[in-house]
């Protein structure tokens, strides 16, 4: 079904909103709950390549739309990740591998937006990287933890909608 990617995107969005609400609650901690990378791996396991690339692009654009991140950085990184995972489905064949991929994708995505946002800052000269390092570590750890926590419920909903939409199960997973 060619519209399956849109359905997957629509069922994934409430989880992204939930992550935004958690970021809102933790605003005084200076931490963003980032799950955009983690929610990408399950669609890559079953959708066609072009579909997973579309989902990835939309997820990336959704993340960067309200944040001061250079246009397209997250979207294109997510698309590259979608191509990588869609063409190596053997890396996603069971849940532990899926979990590993989700955490890796989330952490790398987090690093991409973190450095892209730093690059886009109007007054870069004033950044003291040594002060920012603990924040970066905290952000990366949060991204890894959020990837672990969110993968199970998000993958359940995504699998459910793909089953309903008649998306075939990938051969190398069965």
């Amino acid at each position: 079904m060619s519209w399956a990617w849109l359905l997957v995107l629509l069922v994934t969005y409430p989880w992204l909103l939930l992550a935004d609400m958690l970021s809102d609650s933790l605003a005084s901690w200076g931490v963003v709950i980032f799950i955009t990378g983690a929610v990408l791996v399950v669609p890559c396991r079953r959708l066609k390549l072009w579909q997973s690339v579309l989902v990835a692009g939309c997820l990336g654009f959704l993340f960067e739309a309200r944040r001061p991140i250079p246009d397209g950085v997250m979207a294109f990184w997510m698309m590259a990740a979608a191509i990588f995972f869609s063409t190596r489905r053997e890396w996603l064949r069971n849940f532990p591998l899926l979990l590993r991929a989700a955490v890796a994708c989330n952490v790398l995505g987090c690093l991409v937006w973190y450095f892209a946002a730093a690059w886009a800052l109007p007054y870069r000269g004033t950044i003291a990287w040594i002060n920012v390092l603990p924040e970066l570590i905290l952000q990366v750890l949060t991204a890894a933890f959020a990837g672990l926590i969110f993968l199970l419920p998000v993958s359940y909903v995504q699998e459910l909608i793909m089953d309903r939409a008649g998306v075939p199960v990938a051969k190398d997973i069965v």
Binding site: D20, M21, S23, D24, A27, S28, W29, G30, V31, V32, R67, P68, Y114, A117, A118, A120, L121, V132, E135, L136, Q139
Partner: peptide, 8 residues
Amino acid sequence: LRETSSWW
């Protein structure tokens, strides 16, 4: 919504 990170 409120959101903070190192850069915003």
